[in-house]
Write a protein that binds this DNA or RNA. Structure first.
Lengths: 186, 186
DNA sequence: GTCTATAGAAGGATAGAC
DNA sequence: GTCTATCCTTCTATAGAC
């Protein structure tokens, strides 16, 4: 059948996401991406006009979720219950869809602070928006700090425990992180 | 006097640390380092035999502190008071000497996971040792998770608050982080 | 849509004069 | 201890055939 492969663009992003996460954006060459896909560099340039654009494709594709979350959260009253709901939703997203993206962002932090297109918000700013959702601006600095630590904890629980501090137990750290997060904002 | 500049090696490390932190190791070229120092690339190669060695110089120079801390902590009895003392000491070190190094490590995470010389422990492993000091191996997963979050909180308090989530208040987040850390391990 | 071939740039590293 | 000049490799990116 030699099917026409209409999903090549997507496959490129998948492989790139994997390699960018493992080795970092800069140490990943287009040759390497092409090799893993079984195509040549030139083929990549048919789908993306630059290496930078591959990165953008990966990031932009995931923007929507954050934006939706922010929009939804903005409609909620600003109280403890809301913040708990927001944490829950963040935890669920981290668990279900964001995990690879978070690992990627962690591995390419300096890149994430850069603007990609002139009109685009740097990806790091989305993280900041997320944090501001959970932190109560009116509260004191201690409460604000705890809120941030709660969110960071969710990320660590979902992605960091194995890499950061391998433990024997196969406990569900995502669930634990959520409970600790609740304690922290209460 | 045109002094002989006996401190060039050190000055190279300083500039390199700064640039590696701001832009990442890979995006920093030797040309750039040399330019900021007012010398040429070739001059760098008199002091270091490779770019990688500059990185090693930066990292190794700071190994001693961690090792001392680990050694000291190993002599303590394994109880709550000890863990509080360890947290205090970590907080003090972060505050006084480690700040630039932590920023650097954060900006070059994938690099930090790599072994530099064959006989060397990857820098990331020092972080793991640090975490294991504070976490009570006998305790349940929730307690372990909290311990790790306590240490991470110390780092965020000292370096991350401005960058991660700029706040108007000029509160001393290092102090706050330490208090929250105590709560978390209690 | 993928290929070969190659241009063009940049970086790491070395040789040798001073 | 620092310089100029140069080499080698690797990478991004493009041109053009199939």
């Amino acid at each position: 059948m030699s099917q026409a492969r209409t999903d090549t663009r997507e496959r490129i992003e998948q492989v790139a996401l994997k390699l960018f996460t493992e080795k970092g954006y800069d140490r990943t060459s287009l040759r390497e991406i092409a090799e893993q896909l079984g195509v040549t560099k030139a083929a990549l340039y048919y789908h993306f006009k630059s290496k930078e654009e591959i990165l953008q494709g990966i990031v932009s594709g995931r923007r929507k979720d954050v934006q939706e979350l922010v929009d939804w959260a903005s409609t909620l009253p600003r109280n403890l219950e809301s913040r708990k709901e927001i944490l829950k939703r963040i935890a669920a997203l981290v668990e279900s869809k964001w995990r690879p993206m978070i690992r990627f962002a962690q591995a390419n932090q300096t890149r994430m602070g850069m603007r990609h297109a002139d009109d685009e918000t740097p990806p790091l700013d989305y993280m900041r928006q997320l944090l501001s959702l959970v932190s109560d601006a009116g509260a004191g600095p201690t409460a604000q700090f705890k809120s941030i630590l709660a969110v960071v904890g969710l990320l660590i629980g979902a992605i960091g425990m194995d890499t950061l501090f391998p433990t024997e137990s196969d406990a569900d750290f995502s669930q634990i992180a959520l409970e600790v997060a609740f304690e922290l904002i209460s």
